[in-house]
Write a protein that binds this DNA or RNA. Structure first.
Length: 214
DNA sequence: ACTTTTTGACCGGAA
DNA sequence: CTTCCGGTCAAAAAG
């Protein structure tokens, strides 16, 4: 299986003075190379004999089933002034698109009655969780998701309470594909799927033009 | 055997 | 320079 690595542009958003580094498709290799260049002196040494110092990995320990804190009372979701990218407008089950950036903010979204832990959320898209952090303003954890459709750049941040109710959702980007069917028997014979691969990711101007009239 | 989640490490920008 | 912090990576576990 092919892992998730955006082959076109990893994280290069602006022209940075990284002259001596070739563009590599593998982010892991680039990271290792970068780390090597940072610590080492000259990257001209033969890369074949480089001693790859693998990260100490994250061993998983059996988490103790201790009960979580039950006295959660803090409800301050708004950060204390550190937020600048998008204004947090309090809307009720509606969306607010900020023109400055491609972000859609949801507030106070009612959780669907389905007991499904995740996977298909209310919007119908497939999401894959790739991280979880705890931000400073809130003690609720924030989960990071990404659309599982190939070449789809949409990401999603969700904060949920212990009850599982969603406190805040932040969408980032636009879906480049139609919604997948919820049926269990998709794709029977239609092989004429047009994959638009070079619109997003290769050129930012393309995406910019679509939202120009916001 | 596969896909998805978990989770600490890692990264880069800001303070 | 160091420290802080939000976002991401990826090995291992889970499903």
């Amino acid at each position: 299986g092919e892992k998730w690595k955006m082959p076109s542009q990893e994280k290069i958003t602006a022209v940075k003075p990284v002259a001596s580094r070739p563009f590599s498709s593998f982010s892991s290799f680039s990271k290792l190379l970068k780390d090597f260049t940072t610590t080492g002196s000259t990257p001209i040494t033969s890369p074949e004999e480089t001693v790859i110092v693998r990260r100490p990995k994250a061993t998983r320990f059996a988490s103790a089933p201790s009960d979580l804190t039950t006295g959660i009372t803090a409800t301050t979701l708004q950060d204390g002034g550190s937020d600048t990218t998008h204004e947090q407008m309090v809307v009720n089950t509606e969306q607010a698109v900020s023109c400055d950036d491609h972000q859609t903010v949801f507030h106070n979204i009612n959780k669907p009655i389905h007991s499904a832990r995740n996977r298909l959320s209310y919007d119908g898209y497939n999401w894959r969780k790739y991280g979880q952090k705890q931000v400073k303003g809130s003690e609720f954890p924030r989960s990071y998701y990404k659309c599982t459709y190939p070449t789809c750049p949409v990401k999603r941040k969700v904060e949920t309470t212990l009850d599982g109710q969603i406190a805040e959702i932040v969408y980032n980007g636009e879906h480049n594909h139609p919604k997948p069917h919820l049926s269990k028997k998709p794709v029977s014979s239609t092989g004429t799927e047009v994959v638009i691969a070079d619109l997003y990711g290769s050129n930012d101007a393309g995406a910019e033009s679509r939202l120009g009239g916001c």
